[in-house]
Every structure is written in C-alpha cells, then in structure tokens.
Nucleic acid binder design. Structure first.
Lengths: 337, 337
DNA sequence: CCGATATATGACACCGCTTGACATATCGAG
DNA sequence: CTCGATATGTCAAGCGGTGTCATATATCGG
C-alpha cells in the first residue's frame, strides 16, 4: 500500500506547489499560516518523512551530529551518550555515536570518512579524543564545527565544556588532610587522558598548601580500570610505612583498592580511607560506598550538545563539581604527631 | 583546497566512465583487474569518500544498520554496542545506536521514522525492545530485516540469538543446592524483560528437581538495579527464618544485597551466600567478587550482527553460558537437618 | 572462420529534495 | 493609484551516486 510519500505527493494533496511544501519544511518566511496548516495536514495524512538523504544531497543541513569517543569506561560513556542523546532528541537531531581508536594512526582518516560520508553538521569529542591531534587536524581541515568535552590542551582554540579537575582533586586531597591524613597515596589515571595530569596536579597543590611534602613513593601509575587499582592498592599497602588514605583518580581504581583492602583484612575506613573520582554508579555499589568527586558527565555532554547545535561563537563552559562524602573516609586510626 | 572529490572526479582522473567507478565501488563483476587498480589508485589520490546520502537516494543499500535499545544497564549496553561495533567495523558497515523508550506509545512511529529517514539496511533489537509489540509491528510493516538479541516471545518468527536463561538459573540454583543451601532467596528482574521470567522459572525447576518446595515468601520483586537489590536484601534478611543464600537475577542487584549484608555486619559468604547473573565487570569489582553466570553479551551482539549482515534465512543461535565461581558463595554456616 | 556467449565499459535518465531566478497576485499604506 | 511587502507558483539545475540498456571486444565450440 503505502509506498513512502514524497514531497510531490504532499504538494498535490495540499493543492500547492512543491516549492511551497519545501518552504514549509524549512521554515521559510512568506508562507501564510493558512497554507502552512494545509501543508502540514497533508504531511500528516500521508505520513510524509522527508528523505534525509535527498536533503543532504541538495545541500541542506543533515540534522545529524556525531559523538566521537574512545573511552572504555562503560559508566562514563553511558552518561555521556545519554546526555547528548537527550538534548538531540528534544531538538529533533539525530546522533551518531562513533567509537574510534586514538592510537590507530589512521584515526584522522576515519573521522574524515565519517564526516564526508554521513555529512554530519557537527561533532562532539569526548575525552581522550579531545586531545587527539590527528582528529583535531582533520576536523579543522574539514572546517566543521565541533565541541570538546573535558579537553586537556589548547583549551581556547575550540568550544568546550569541562570541569575543574585540578580544583576537584585539590578539594578531595584537602578533605583528606582535614580529616587528619598526612600520608596519602595517589593512583594516577590513564596517561592518554589529560585529566590525569590535572588531578595529580591538584593533589600536589593541596599538599603544598598544607605544608606537606610530596612523596613520589606514594604515587603509582594507573589506567582508570579496576585492575590497575588493584595493582596500585597492593603496591601502596606493601609499603613499609603505608599511607592512611588512598586517593584513586577514578572510582574503578578505588574499587580495586577496596578489593585489596578487603582481601588483606584491612578495614575501610577504619584502617584505610579510600576515595574515588567521578561518582559513577560504581561508587554507590561497592562497599563501603565511596567518598568521591561528582563529575557532572551527563550535564557536560548535554551542554556540549547545546553549544554545538546553537552553533554560535567560541564558547567555554565550566560546570561545577561536588565532593560527595560517603563511608569510605574516616580520620586515620592513630594520629602520628 | 580539497573540496571533497566526487565520483566524477575519480572517473576523470582514472580515465574511465563514472559507471565504472561505481562498479569498482560495489565490487561488481566484469571489471578488469587493470581498470580496477587504476580506479582505486585514483580514489586514493583524491581521498574519495562515497556519499552515503547519494547512494541511498539512488536506491542502493545504505551500508548502515541500527541497534535499537532501551536498557539502562551501562555495562550491558557497552558490551552490546561493542559487540555490534566490532563486526560492523570489520565489514565496513556503519552502526547507528538508537535508544528508545519502550513505554512511549509512539515507539512504533519513532522506529518507523528512523528507518525511513536513515534508510538503514537492517536492525538489531536488544532486550527489552525485542519484545516491544509496536516496534515489532512497525518493523514487519516496513519489511526490513532484523535480528533480536535475547528475545522472550515469538522466538521462532524472526532471527535471534540468545542464551538459555532458564537453564543458567537452574544451574546456579543447583550449584547453591549442591553447596548445601536449602532456603534460597530469589530477587526477580525487571518485569519488562522476558528473561526475568525465564530466570525465575529455572530457579523453580532446580528446586523442584531437588525436591525442595518453592516458597513464595523467598521471592521478591526487582528491577535489575542496585536499589532494588538493596530492597530485596533488606526484605530477605528481615525474614524471621532467613535464607542462607540469595540468588539475585543480575549483578547489580546482587551488589545491593552485598551492601545490605555489609551494612548489617552479615558476613558473605560465611553467613550468607550471594550470587548474581550476567558477569558484568561489577561482579569482579564488588567484595567479595560474585559467583555469577557469565552471559556472553558481546558475543551475542556480534553474532546478531553477523546474522543480520549475512542476511540469509531465519536463523536462531544459542550461545553457551558459564557458571563463574568466585568468592561470594560457601556452604551454609550450620546445616539444618 | 562464424555466430553465440562471456567480459568490459559507457551514455543517460533518475532518486527526492533544495535553491535561485523569475513571474504573478493580493493588499494595505501613502 | 502606485509602491513595497507578502504569498505562491513555474522551471531548471544540481547534489552524487546507481540502474537500465546499449555497445564493444574477447573467447569459444563447432
């Protein structure tokens, strides 16, 4: 029955010219309320869906944007996708979520391919693609608008939304210090992510301000995943003079530390305080629930989408973080004078 | 400089007809090795990317498929997306991940819109959209091929991939019984998901076979999320004659039970065994790590994609599950004669 | 060596929509 | 009554591919 109706069918049914239907479709001025209504009625009656392909081809906007990511944290990506998604839906824009591999030398090509093949109107970059040079260059060459979520470099060059990772880490460290901790272990994030450095920086700054010396021996590498948390936890708890608190730069790694503590019968927070970062669902799911930094991921994504779709000038928006106190932190057992 | 090259540019550069380039693009027979090489060389030189829009418009396949989902478990969706992704990438197919809301009365329309606008060649449905009537009807009316991942109903009507939820739940229950448990609490899954019923069924079947009576008082409602696990855990641990083991129908809820146990100082697995289902990363992340059923999510997704792209006849594929033993299960403290 | 068949390539219309150049028509303001 | 703003239509071109049909050459059995 219902072969998909095209613009001509609609025009015929509404008794107007094809051009007029096109005008209605594109919100052109100089269309009377009356005809507009008639055309819209016809569209509805025919269940008319303008072919995106045809519109794109004839040079119009595609009403599609892409979210490019390469992040292996399910929680993080879920939040980001959802944030973008909600705003897009509300605006009638289609979202293409595209994973890439930032370590692949051909990423630039892949992105170029994505843009030229699908004709997306704009792009949202999430960390760590935000700082992937080949991608950035490709996008600039293509002259397509894009917004970065939590970029680490060249902050000013393109629109971006972000939170203050350094300040957040500073806040958390200060919180620990205020609780009485003096030896605070720190597990770094994935080296690909610029935020990792910022968090370490915040940790050091808080230490400095409090007059505590920075001990490289209390820092360990991590990759933002559970296993590196386990490694870090083991390393720190094996230390002869072990820390009374561990600040892991994300929740997954904090969970790893928790597992190590449980495994060794080290009570948290009684004998060891543990904190995370991000406030993913994981933070509430583990035991004890994690004191962590709430990173407004969905909000960041939503805001990025808004900026992209608004399409105005260079915009930078910083969203606030929050320190969430839960049960994984307590004053150290015996205060060392 | 580089305005995007089109097929004509390529043709000119290779010294052949446009049609010939098209043939090369689509792997048509009857193109000599020689011309093919020449054309490909030209494409490379010009960095040619065929416009999806144009191909769609001219009636060809779009080389795009959509994954439709409405699942709020980040980990599950991450795995599913990744599974689809990998195969698509390998096949040069673009994947559009599209969330929907199965409770929205207009889902059918949304899906219809998606298909007619993007001209996707096929669709993958993940639970619970697999059993969403409006969507199913819309897809059938559109006469577009689709594959369902873990459908609960009308199994035979469309291609599908799935695991044996009932058997898996049976296995898990039997495992607990073999460990000596006689009173096993069960937390149901989200009522929207057909798998929830299957898992309950498997639990009952194992009980029956072991000659244990089914006690409705040991069953509680759940929604596949942490909070309902907490509710279920509280309910079960408040019981005068409380169970020695709790089988939660997914890992998130099992984590909830664990939290309740920790909170009450109930040792797991010493005083209470807890098991999950799915084997998400969460299962390894909580303490103690969960004994659970490994559901091959990425594999299911990958297989579904394979079937869809192969585009052959009705296919059904069951993938095996595995019972993963970790530390959350032990024999009950004192055996009741 | 011939017509038949397989292989290889080209010409051209067309997919559904937008757009620009014009042509008209109506209408209220000056 | 004329003018500019508003409203609508006609027509042709074009976006970047693909399908159909025609054509040209190579190959092959008899």
């Amino acid at each position: 029955m219902s072969e998909r109706a095209n613009i001509r069918d609609v025009a015929a049914r509404a008794g107007v010219a094809v051009k007029t239907v096109s005008r209605v479709l594109n919100d052109h001025p100089y269309v009377s309320k009356d005809t507009k209504a008639r055309v819209e009625e016809a569209m509805r009656a025919l269940d008319f869906r303008p072919s995106v392909a045809a519109r794109i081809l004839s040079g119009a906007k595609s009403n599609q944007i892409a979210l490019i990511y390469d992040n292996h944290s399910p929680y993080y990506m879920f939040q980001i996708q959802t944030g973008c998604w909600e705003y897009c839906k509300q605006q009638g824009i289609r979202l293409l979520a595209q994973p890439v591999d930032v370590t692949d030398p051909r990423v630039g090509d892949q992105v170029r391919g994505l843009v030229t093949e699908t004709h997306v109107d704009g792009i949202i970059l999430s960390s760590p693609v935000t700082d992937c040079d080949p991608v950035l260059r490709a996008l600039e060459a293509l002259d397509i608008p894009f917004v970065r979520i939590s970029p680490g470099t060249n902050h000013a060059l393109t629109s971006s939304v972000f939170m203050d990772d350094a300040q957040a880490a500073d806040d958390m460290t200060t919180h620990l210090i205020n609780m009485g901790h003096r030896r605070i272990g720190f597990i770094k994030g994935h080296p690909n992510h610029m935020a990792s450095d910022d968090r370490l920086f915040g940790y050091r700054r808080a230490l400095d301000r409090a007059g505590l010396s920075f001990e490289p021996g209390l820092i360990c590498d991590g990759e933002f995943d559970f296993d590196s948390g386990v490694r870090g936890g083991n390393y720190l708890l094996d230390l002869p003079d072990r820390p009374t608190a561990v600040f892991a730069s994300n929740d997954d790694m904090a969970a790893g530390v928790l597992a190590v503590a449980h495994d060794r019968g080290v009570n948290v927070p009684g004998e060891l305080s543990v904190t995370g970062f991000d406030d993913t669902t994981l933070a509430r799911t583990v035991w004890p629930p994690l004191t962590t930094i709430h990173q407004p991921m969905a909000e960041l994504a939503r805001t990025a989408t808004e900026i992209l779709i608004a399409g105005g000038d260079l915009t930078h928006r910083r969203l606030p973080h929050t320190l969430i106190e839960r049960a994984s932190v307590a004053p150290p057992a015996r205060n060392i004078a």
